[in-house]
């Protein structure tokens, strides 16, 4: 009687175990990286929010200072207070060029431009206090919305 050669059997379990180990490590590493990336983004977003808030507070202070410079009974800028107004306007321009460009969105940028122009028109005696106050409120509302939508 002729002997049949023994069947070749492959022990897949020996190959599967390391594969599963590698797969497990890869998934773990991916989850870790993904989590870190998410936390990093959240941290950046929190940091940006804080910077935005600080910048908008500076703008609010500059706008407030401009709006409390006295005006005359006809709501025009008082001739005797133009120096005070100019000094406050310098502070606003520092925010305009130095602080806001880092954090502002397009709506705040537009409101900043409009307030800057209105402050100039008010300084020249072409627009009255109501116009300046209205643009100031629009600017602060734009800042508020920008923070809400952050």
């Amino acid at each position: 009687m002729e002997e049949t050669p023994p069947k070749k059997t492959t022990d897949y379990s020996k190959a599967v175990a390391p594969l599963l180990t590698v797969l497990g490590i890869s998934v773990g590493a991916w989850q870790f990286t993904s989590q870190m990336s998410h936390e990093s983004k959240m941290e950046f977003s929190r940091s940006m929010y804080t910077k935005k808030l600080q910048a908008y507070e500076q703008v609010g202070k500059a706008v407030g200072d401009l709006l409390v410079v006295p005006h005359d009974e006809q709501l025009w800028i008082s001739a005797g207070d133009t120096l005070a107004f100019d000094s406050c306007l310098e502070r606003f321009r520092t925010c305009y060029w130095g602080v806001l460009p880092l954090v502002e969105d397009s709506a705040v940028e537009t409101a900043m431009i409009q307030f800057k122009d209105m402050a100039r028109f008010y300084r020249r005696g072409e627009n009255d206090y109501h116009d300046l106050a209205r643009e100031g409120m629009s600017l602060m509302n734009a800042c508020n919305k920008s923070l809400e939508n952050h």
Binding site: Y96, W97, P101, E109, M112, I113, D117, R120, F121, E126
Partner: peptide, 14 residues
């Protein structure tokens, strides 16, 4: 009367 341009961006002078 005054005509004032609507600036297109911060560096665009009115």
């Amino acid at each position: 009367m005054r005509l004032a341009t609507v600036p297109d961006g911060k560096t665009d002078a009115t």
